[in-house]
Design a protein around this nucleic acid. Structure first.
Length: 381
DNA sequence: AAGACCGGGCTCTGCCATGATT
DNA sequence: AATCATGGCAGAGCCCGGTCTT
């Protein structure tokens, strides 16, 4: 093992020392590996468009999907200097198994160009936020690109400082970087731009505390920083116009559950809004009903045409009035199947929606079952 | 105590385009 | 010219349970 560590250190040195004439300083024990790609006149660069045979061999031995690598970042396979062994050892030490390592390299081949030093440093920085190595490994396994796409550790450090300075709760910061790891691969400038953009919206709408506003939006929608200001702006504008919201209404929506739909694709938001509107009108609702529904439950705009329509039909068929849905739209948060099952159960015990409302749908399975049990025993008395 | 209201958990990555760098 | 770094996009919900209200 000590030998391996020593080799890693040398490898790092090897990668970081470039002679003025453009030649690499090559440790003797590595020349065999380089022989396959070294031309007659001692150039260390391989011939154009030729893959590094020994690298291919290494990757194959490691179980990397070379076909995938070739498809994603073919240039990496032509490189003379790579650090696949160092990376592999590094990740093993952090608790990743060989399958995970192979998968990471297959999906983001450039990972093998990062030096041991770089990896170590990056890891240390992330450990400021994540308590365990395994947490970072699992994120890396999920999204290798987020970890490896940028080689700028200084930027990562600045990002962590910046995001921390937003005074997000530790829990929220952690959640953001777990669920949207691309956030810390963004340039500091990009992250700042979004935060400033959000603060600007707040000011524009007459809000008093732009910093708090941005903080709230981010903690409610941890994906917001990996979205673009252009996209978010379009959605904000669209919501404002299509719902004819006042500044105050819009501000309230955005820092409430409306934050969750800000990163929807623009087209999708429009399509879903139009469908919802059309459907509601066809069921005898007015524009204000649509508005109220959306203000109470913005997530309704997440539902595609098919899903929303099926769900509404199911509710109506079960004897629920559209007006009740407008009043308690949370029911739409549950799957059609779940709703259908509950409708059946409720019918059995003769549940009166007119009298009792439809809030009973907004409960966990456990609670629902308990209530049905109670209702059953009551009806048997 | 029952029910209403609400926040939060899960895991939102993998691909393409383009500008920057070497 | 090749490769790297980075921005941006499409995709398409459901469930649980803590805590406040009544």
């Amino acid at each position: 093992m000590a030998g391996v560590v020593g080799m890693r250190a040398l490898f790092t040195l090897y990668q970081s020392v470039k002679l003025p004439c453009g030649f690499w300083l090559i440790p003797p024990y590595l020349t065999s590996r380089l022989c396959s790609t070294t031309t007659k006149n001692n150039e260390t660069k391989p011939p154009m468009n030729l893959e590094n045979e020994s690298l291919l061999e290494n990757l194959n031995l490691m179980g990397v999907d070379v076909k995938m690598v070739r498809q994603r970042q073919p240039g990496v396979l032509r490189k003379v200097i790579t650090n696949e062994h160092g990376l592999s050892l590094f990740l093993q030490r952090k608790g990743a198994d060989s399958k995970v390592i192979a998968s990471i390299i297959s999906r983001y081949p450039r990972a093998i160009t990062r030096s041991a030093e770089h990896l170590e440093q990056r890891w240390e920085l992330l450990r400021n936020i994540f308590q365990t190595d395994s947490e970072i490994v699992s994120i890396m396994d999920r999204s290798p690109e987020s970890f490896f796409r940028s080689s700028d550790n200084e930027n990562l450090e600045k990002n962590i400082t910046f995001l921390t300075s937003l005074r997000l709760k530790t829990k929220d910061l952690h959640r953001m970087l777990t669920k949207a790891p691309r956030t810390f691969a963004n340039s500091l400038g990009l992250n700042k731009k979004m935060v400033e953009f959000l603060e600007g919206i707040c000011v524009e709408l007459g809000g008093k505390d732009p910093q708090a506003f941005a903080k709230t939006v981010i903690s409610r929608n941890v994906y917001i920083l990996i979205s673009s200001t252009k996209k978010v702006k379009k959605n904000v504008d669209y919501l404002k116009a299509s719902l004819r919201l006042s500044d105050a209404e819009l501000l309230a929506l955005l820092q409430g559950s409306g934050a969750e739909i800000l990163d929807l694709s623009n087209e999708y938001l429009k399509k879903n809004f139009n469908n919802l509107h059309q459907k509601m009108v066809s069921l005898g609702c007015r524009k204000t009903d649509v508005k109220n529904l959306i203000l109470k439950f913005p997530m309704v705009l997440y539902l595609g045409r098919e899903k929303l329509n099926t769900k509404l039909e199911c509710l109506l068929k079960g004897g629920i009035k559209i007006k009740q849905v407008v009043e308690k739209p949370k029911v739409l948060d549950f799957s059609t199947q779940n709703i259908a099952e509950r409708l059946k159960e409720l019918q059995k015990v003769g549940y009166d929606f007119e009298k009792n409302g439809i809030n009973i749908f907004d409960s966990s399975k456990k609670r629902f079952v308990a209530r049905i049990k109670k209702l059953t025993s009551q009806s048997n008395d």
